[in-house]
């Protein structure tokens, strides 16, 4: 695919994100008209006005978070697949999402989450940070890709077991209920402070992805060839792990577990970018943002009164779609 085609693709994905963002702002149970809503959003005059409140405090953070979470998951998925040279890799492999979930679950169970508004996402970020520290300690500076993956599997298993233990021993059925629902992933009832909590780690994660991009291309031919082309494999491993952990940890902290975005999006867009891992990074980020925006719109349109969870929908739609991709590639004899 020509260079022109790549930028056209990014522009198309960007336009889709913008359109879905607008649609997300204009969708909700409050019944605010299009013109009224946009006026309230932009002018923002009269803080007591119901429309202003809904637009600025409810819908705007929700739409912004959908873009951030989707973008982070898409980017992290593309990085993991490029780094492991495996189309089945996904961001959860490092154990960060499971650890972030454990942090959140402990906050919910202990009642810390009700102490102040950001206790839950901060506890989740703490869980993610611990998992990364463990990962670095386990895989070490001389560790191989395999040790990183095995460490991720082990950390994931420990965190999942911890979460199950908390649920198991929970004396409070309401807390248990809340935990189960939180883990399904959602963007409902989030505020601008959630945006603030997630913004910094996500930007840091995205910034770390930039120096890794060219190395991912070189890695297409294997670690030995990449190393002899000047890629510093150990440094790249560290940057990749840190970047993915920041992106996924922050996403899980504010939205809970949202599956399949990081797996499906890189898959779907790989051919459109001519297979090149570095080009897949921005494309998968935009695609992920569009997917989460669309899914978050869908949960509000399909069952407005039932609080259908976002993570449930992405898995319900993502998994069959993934099967379809597998069947398609089988037919093509790959």
């Amino acid at each position: 695919m020509a260079r022109f085609g790549f930028f056209t693709l990014l522009a198309a994905l960007g336009a889709a994100v913008a359109a879905l963002f607008l649609a997300s702002l204009l969708t909700g149970p409050s019944g605010i008209g299009v013109g009224q809503g946009l006026r309230a959003l932009i002018s923002g005059r009269g803080g007591a006005d119901m429309a202003v409140l809904v637009m600025q405090e409810v819908r705007l953070p929700r739409a912004i978070l959908a873009v951030m979470v989707g973008g982070a998951l898409g980017l992290a998925g593309a990085m993991m697949q490029g780094w492991l040279r495996n189309p089945l890799a996904e961001p959860g492999l490092l154990g960060t999402s499971a650890s972030a979930a454990l942090g959140a679950v402990i906050a919910l169970q202990s009642g810390l989450a009700t102490a102040f508004a950001l206790a839950l996402p901060l506890a989740a970020l703490g869980g993610a940070a611990i998992s990364v520290a463990l990962m670095v300690a386990l895989s070490g500076p001389r560790g191989s890709t395999l040790t990183v993956i095995l460490s991720g599997v082990a950390i994931s298993a420990i965190a999942t077991a911890g979460t199950a233990l908390v649920l198991n021993l929970s004396p409070n059925p309401f807390a248990a209920n809340e935990i189960v629902f939180w883990m399904m992933g959602s963007l409902a009832d989030r505020s601008m402070s959630h945006v603030q909590v997630a913004l910094l780690p996500m930007l840091a994660g995205a910034a770390l992805a930039v120096p890794v991009a060219r190395g991912l291309d070189a890695l297409t031919l294997g670690e030995d060839v990449a190393a002899t082309m000047g890629v510093r494999i150990g440094r790249m491993r560290l940057l990749t792990v840190a970047s993915v952990a920041l992106l996924v940890g922050a996403a899980t902290a504010v939205a809970g577990a949202i599956g399949f975005v990081g797996l499906v999006m890189p898959h779907l867009l790989r051919r459109a970018v001519g297979g090149r891992p570095s080009r897949l990074l921005p494309a998968a980020a935009l695609g992920g943002a569009a997917m989460v925006l669309a899914a978050d719109l869908a949960v509000r349109l399909i069952a407005p009164e039932r609080d259908l969870k976002l993570g449930v929908l992405t898995a319900l739609v993502g998994a069959p779609f993934f099967l379809h991709l597998i069947l398609k590639s089988r037919r093509e004899g790959l």
């Binding site: 695919m1 040279r85 297409t220 031919l221 001519g274 297979g275 090149r276 891992p277």
Partner: peptide, 12 residues
Amino acid sequence: REIAWDMPVEAV
């Protein structure tokens, strides 16, 4: 002879 992704010959 590892080539992980399906790229055009020129890109490889």
